[in-house]
Design a binder for these strands. Structure first.
Length: 804
RNA sequence: GGGAGUUUAGCUCAGCUGGUAGAGUACCUGCCUUACAAGCAGAGGGUCAUAGGUUCGAGCCCUAUAACUCCCACCA
């Protein structure tokens, strides 16, 4: 017997412990059934999980549970992405110190201990949400084993020629003091000033106007560009121009990238103010002049401004130009600058020795890979393709930071040659370990590489890293491709892209066959959720505590794939109602089934109708979930369920209560139907609301089916062929019930009011007649008269209560 | 500038291969019905963003337009 009220706090905890202790979701390496492997997103350990993560993990969960219910062997690993800049930033904020203020080793130790705390929090949350990934073992992107895989990947790609080291322009964050990748850029609108400056023509008392937002870079001007079609200024090509204030001369070149409409149509070029400068530098073989040092201060080039910050220098230079009458006018503008997504600082371009993975020369393969993958929803594919088409930087994987996977690289002290670690010695830390062999030049002294790898250089290997937890084969492709990569749309250009790169370069294979892309949960005003801010949105912990894990999952499962949704607690009330209804309906139905064991019986008409409906539902349900249409699948089974409660159960409950009046066989038929349909529904609901379905299942069905859990019990397939005519005829019976209810409602009568008689006109009287006992009961009619003809229901006299 | 998405009832959203506009919620009217008042029954409520087109027939297909959201590019 089920409790009168469902106590979710107690039951959810009970079943979570039960699942955990009994390894209910364990992947079985020896199973013969098909494996469904999920490349679970490892949460980045850089703050607290918010509702957005919870909702997208819930989608993964539902899909994992669905495939488990289909009898597949689900490989659902778990891990943490706990190294790299995001984690460092989190730790810096927590301890209120910059990494550079501490000894490297000390900082790394603090990172390890701080992330451990967060990981414990993550673990508790995952468990309390009832997640069915393998919580007993997990990978970490900083663990020695992961480092080994990551370093091996580096060595292999280096040997294959995909990785190269170069002193080349790369994106530089002056705040984090490290290089970063194109995918880490974020646009930000800033107020800025367009400064119109006088560039005098050398030896003449004539000037041209050049507009710039970055006057502090005047110390690094290498040339001035005009448009090749600019007739008015064409004469300048033969002249030299004098850089204002700094007084040195630069040449003038023509390039079609110059926009005649912008500013004065004449552009100064520095190496490097922006992307275009970078291109011009290469195309016109311009000299490289570095205006800034790596910490965002002015370099010696800036003469008297050396050591000022970029912003300070900008002000100071403007002041100088004004004094020297070289500033013609200023215009306030809003323009977009690229900032570092981890700290919001505008990025600069720096020329430094960095490690790169070549992606630009493989755009075609990367693009084709995007075409071959199955994207859910499909339109998300465009984001990937768009990104690949617009790639303009090779993937810079070196970071001038502390907490990350080290490069397995030293440099010969004498000849400077790169010395790679031996594969069998991995993982290595070149700052502690030494190469085992002397350099080819004979020198035995080495300088370690102090840079660490970009965190994505490692997390792009999650299919291999997570497969290794079971295969123990390291960097290996035996489990590739995985069946599913799930993540939110922000990760398409980052994690998805990089994973595809690595998988293609290593194995010439796709990392997975399908991608499932979740949308964002935004705050009610539409702004982004962030791990660091609350935005007026409840935390997952709060929501689960208040509403239960099942209700929270119900909410998440109703969100459309790929679409952003504003968070609202109102939506949780539907889930609460649903869970309550499921409890009450199950309690009611099971109260009739206590000692019942199913056996074949000749079915009553409406029982057959419900079973046909169930088959119909089953087909659609499976089809939706196979296509990752989570919310549609849930809506479908939920609609069936409410119909089951409000129509079917109402129709048959008298039979269940009174076998003496309605007949033993008729009662048996209802029991048979209830038994199967409730069981089938519980199984279908189980991926969405795993706790309450388990509680109900365990109270009755588990013993009969002899299964450890509803979640490994398999769906109930009652046959795929549906008798449509039974469905239609049954609907007509419901129409009769509806007509009677309408009559009673309009006449403000209680639904139990009895009626003298009702007259039914229909072409299906034979069918309807067979339901007469049920119909009389639910309608409260003493007599039913049948007529052949177009469908019509006439209500006879009401029997007053006193009489009844 | 390129791309994607959205626009359907007061609100949140479904709507398949083109065939009489749907659900939940809110509001209104009733009903304590031997599971559930966190329930049940019933009613009202829509120029399917706009303008054209294709079609016997368009929420759906085509062409424009508008508004909002997101991604990318631009950043002199």
């Amino acid at each position: 017997m089920l409790d009168k009220k469902y106590n979710f706090a107690e039951k959810e905890k009970k079943w979570q412990d039960y699942w955990f202790e009994n390894d209910i979701y364990k992947y079985d390496p020896n199973a013969k059934s098909k494996t469904f492997a999920i490349d679970t997103p490892p949460p980045t350990v850089n703050g607290h999980i918010h509702m957005g993560h919870l909702s997208s993990y819930t989608h993964i969960e539902t899909i994992a549970r669905h495939h488990r219910m289909k009898g597949e062997n689900v490989y659902f690993p778990f891990g943490f992405d706990d190294n790299g800049l995001p984690t460092e930033r989190y730790v810096e904020k927590t301890i209120k110190k910059h990494a550079s203020e501490l000894p490297r080793q000390k900082f790394v130790e603090i990172c390890l201990s701080e992330t451990k705390k967060l990981e414990d929090e993550f673990f508790d949350l995952y468990k309390s949400a009832g997640f069915s990934c393998n919580l007993k073992e997990h990978y970490s992107s900083i663990s020695p084993n992961t480092q080994k895989i990551s370093q091996k990947s580096f060595l292999e790609l280096y040997k294959k020629g995909y990785i190269y080291q170069d002193k080349a322009p790369s994106l530089w964050c002056t705040e984090c003091q490290t290089a970063c990748a194109q995918s880490e850029l974020e646009d930000m609108d800033v107020q800025s000033t367009f400064n119109y400056l006088k560039f005098f023509i050398s030896g003449k008392d004539k000037y041209v106007t050049v507009a710039t937002t970055r006057p502090e870079m005047l110390c690094g001007v290498v040339c001035v560009f005009i448009n090749p079609n600019d007739k008015k200024n064409a004469y300048l090509l033969k002249e030299k121009l004098v850089v204002p204030h700094f007084g040195y001369e630069v040449p003038v070149y023509a390039d079609e990238l110059v926009d005649l409409e912008k500013g004065s149509g004449v552009v100064m070029c520095c190496t490097f103010g922006d992307n275009v400068d970078k291109e011009w530098q290469r195309k016109h073989a311009l000299p490289i002049k570095e205006c800034f040092t790596s910490n965002g201060r002015m370099s010696a080039l800036a003469k008297e401004f050396e050591g000022l910050s970029i912003i300070e220098c900008r002000k100071a230079v403007i002041e100088k130009l004004r004094e020297e009458h070289l500033l013609i006018k200023q215009e306030n503008i809003t323009h977009t600058v690229s900032t570092h997504d981890r700290c919001g600082t505008p990025v600069e371009i720096e020329v430094k020795k960095q490690w790169f993975i070549d992606v630009l020369s493989h755009k075609k393969e990367l693009y084709d890979a995007g075409i071959k993958l199955n994207w859910h929803p499909l339109n998300m594919r465009a984001r990937y393709l768009n990104w690949v088409e617009n790639l303009s930087w090779n993937w810079c994987i070196s970071r001038q930071r502390y907490y990350g996977v080290p490069f397995p690289v030293w440099y010969c002290k004498k000849c400077g040659k790169v010395c790679l670690a031996d594969e069998k010695d991995l993982p290595v830390d070149p700052m502690k370990d030494q190469p085992k062999h002397a350099c080819q030049c004979g020198c035995n002294e080495f300088v370690p590489e102090t840079d660490v790898m970009d965190t994505w250089a490692t997390s792009s290997l999650t299919p291999q890293i997570s497969a290794d937890m079971h295969t123990h084969k390291g960097l290996d492709d035996s489990m590739l491709p995985f069946d599913l990569r799930p993540n939110a749309h922000d990760n398409i250009r980052v994690w998805d892209f990089y994973t595809i790169v690595k998988s293609l370069y290593h194995f010439n294979k796709l990392p997975w066959t399908d991608l499932m892309i979740s949308g964002y949960v935004t705050s009610p005003d539409g702004s982004k959720l962030a791990k660091s801010k609350a935005n007026g949105v409840s935390s997952p912990q709060e929501v689960i505590k208040t509403y239960s894990a099942d209700v929270t999952r119900y909410w998440a499962n109703n969100l459309a794939l790929g679409k952003d949704t504003a968070f609202s607690l109102i939506e949780f009330d539907n889930g609460k109602k649903f869970v309550n209804k499921l409890w009450n309906a199950s309690k009611f139905v099971l109260s009739f089934l206590e000692d019942y064991r199913p056996r074949e019986v000749e079915l009553e008409t409406m029982d057959a109708w419900l079973l046909e409906n169930y088959k119909n539902l089953y087909n659609r349900f499976i089809k939706h979930l196979d296509a990752y249409e989570i919310s549609l699948a849930l809506a479908e089974v939920e609609r069936f369920f409410w119909n089951f409660c409000d129509n079917y159960v109402e129709l048959v409950k008298r039979r269940l209560y009174n076998p003496d009046i309605f007949g033993q066989r008729q009662c048996e038929s209802a029991k048979y139907t209830c038994f199967h349909v409730l069981l089938g529904m519980l199984k279908m609901f189980s991926p969405f609301v795993p706790h309450i379905t388990e509680e109900i299942y365990q109270s009755y069905y588990a013993g009969i089916e002899n299964k450890a859990s509803v979640h490994v019990s398999g769906y109930l397939n009652l046959g795929e062929k549906v008798d449509k005519s039974v469905l239609e005829k049954g609907e007509e019976v419901l129409d009769i019930v509806s007509a009677v209810r309408q009559f009673k409602s309009e006449n403000k009568l209680s639904l139990k009011t009895e009626l003298e008689d009702i007259t039914i006109t229909s072409k299906n009287c034979d069918f309807i007649k067979k339901t007469e006992a049920d119909l009389k009961g639910v309608a409260g009619a003493r007599k039913i008269v049948y007529k052949d003809g177009d469908f019509k229901v006439e209500i006879g006299k009401v029997i007053e209560e006193e009489q009844a």
